[in-house]
Every structure is written in C-alpha cells, then in structure tokens.
Amino acid sequence: MNSAVSRSREASPSDPSGPAVEAAEQRVARYDWTALAANLDNFGCAVLETLLSPEECRELAALYPHEEHFRSHIHMARHGFGKGEYRYFRYPLPDLLGGLRTALYPRLAPVANQWNERMGLDTRYPQRHADFLKSCHDAGQLRPTPLLLQYVPGDFNCLHQDLYGDLAFPLQVAILLSEPGRDFTGGEFVLTEQRPRMQSRAEVVPLRQGDAVAFAVHNRPVQGTKGNYRVNLRHGVSRVRSGKRHTVGIIFHDAR
C-alpha cells in the first residue's frame, strides 16, 4: 500500500506528526484562504479544488472493504439516515487523512472563532488541533469521527448535522473520491440553510474527483439589517443514479 495512506508508527493515535503533517501543511498552504473564508462567510461552504490526486482518491476508496482500518460500520437505512453505508476510521488514522485533519484545522479555526464572536457565543477554538482534541477527550469524546462513505444506485444521505457530543467544531470537510460521470451519476452534495422566518435555501455544490468542500456543520452568522443573526444548516447527498460513489469526511471533533 502507498505510504500516503499507511498508518504512522511514530505519531500518537489522535495527533499525527512528522512528514505526513508537513506534507499536508504544504498542500493546504497553496490555497487562497482569504477567498475561501469569504466563500464560507457568504455561502456556508467553499471548494478546495484538487486537494487529492486521482491515485490518492483510489487508494483511500480501496480501504473500504478492509475492516482493520475502521471502528464501526453503519447502514443508513437501519437508522433512518437515508440509504447507503459508511465506516468510521479507528485511530491511528491513515497518514494522508490524519495529516489533512491536522493541517486543515488551523486554517478553519479563525473562521470558527469569528463566527462565534458574531453570533455572541463564548466558545473559542485553540489554534492547534491537538489542543482541541484534548478538550474533546477530557469531555469523554474519545472516538474518532473521520469516515469513508459508499453509495450505489438508489442510495442517498438525508439532510443532517454531524454532532457527536457537547463539543463540536463548527466546520468540516468532505472530499469526493470518485469521478462524476465516469464512476457514478447523481449523488450531488447538497447544503440547506434555514433562516429565521424564511424558507430554506439550497446550495448544490459541484465537485470533481479529489475536490474537497469545507462547510458549516450546524450554525453560521449572517449579517442582517439589525446585526448578525444565526442560521441553521444541514447537508446531505442526492440520489445516486448509477455507479458507485465514495467520499471521505473529515470531522474535527471526536465522538462519545
């Protein structure tokens, strides 16, 4: 297996370090984070084009049948989540995934802190992901939340929010591992936003293989005529029409 998705033997289980993180930091640094933050402010989501190469996408998707990488296997229909399935990774995460989780967090933490300030919330997030994870673990949220999702024809994911305990980081990232039009059809990423006393607004986010979308988990602030107000967001995936679709999700808080 390529070293990019191998498990690190030197890093701590929940806080990777070393070459995997350094490589991820270099990869993440090439994006215009001022523009991405503006998109998050304006639309609740932002696309990082070609975050992963096609080879890296295939290698991550190929992990799905191998149970040793995962702590649990969820069939959505059993829980009313939709139709399809996903697996939560166990610690230690694959190097590529753990490195990206560590490298993306400090780019998103300033947005999260600004949002909480605008919404009048007291919570502030530390700059280092390891420090935030320690808070999660101290609160009893010990289980890793990054996941690998698999959809086949007829599968879909109901609109939802990925909240797993009292502590939740307000942004997360999903990376499309399959190529639309070649590997599958349908299966669009959908984000909905409910503003007070208004009808819901839907945002369909077009992605190609290797693209990532950063988006709001739960709430975000919107500037109104009388100041900032809070809107509620949910995300999901529309029905897959043909083929097979794989996505990896990077959630920054751990679960109870």
Rank of each mutant, 00 (worst) to 15 (best):
E25P: 00
V28Q: 01
A29D: 11
A29R: 13
R30H: 07
D32R: 07
D32L: 08
T34N: 12
A35K: 11
A37Y: 06
A37K: 08
A38P: 05
N39M: 00
N42T: 07
G44D: 07
A46E: 13
P54M: 08
C57W: 04
A62Q: 07
E68L: 02
H75Y: 09
A77S: 14
H79Q: 15
G80M: 08
Y86M: 03
R87L: 02
F89H: 05
Y91C: 01
L93G: 01
P94T: 06
D95K: 08
D95T: 06
D95Y: 00
L96Y: 02
G98F: 06
L100S: 11
R101F: 06
R101S: 15
T102W: 06
T102F: 09
A103N: 07
L108W: 06
A109N: 04
V111M: 03
N113C: 14
E117C: 03
E117W: 00
G120C: 10
L121Q: 13
D122L: 02
D122G: 01
R128K: 10
R128Y: 10
K134S: 13
C136N: 11
H137E: 05
A139E: 09
P144Q: 12
T145W: 05
P146S: 11
P146V: 12
L148A: 06
Q150Y: 11
Y151E: 10
D155M: 06
H160V: 08
D166F: 03
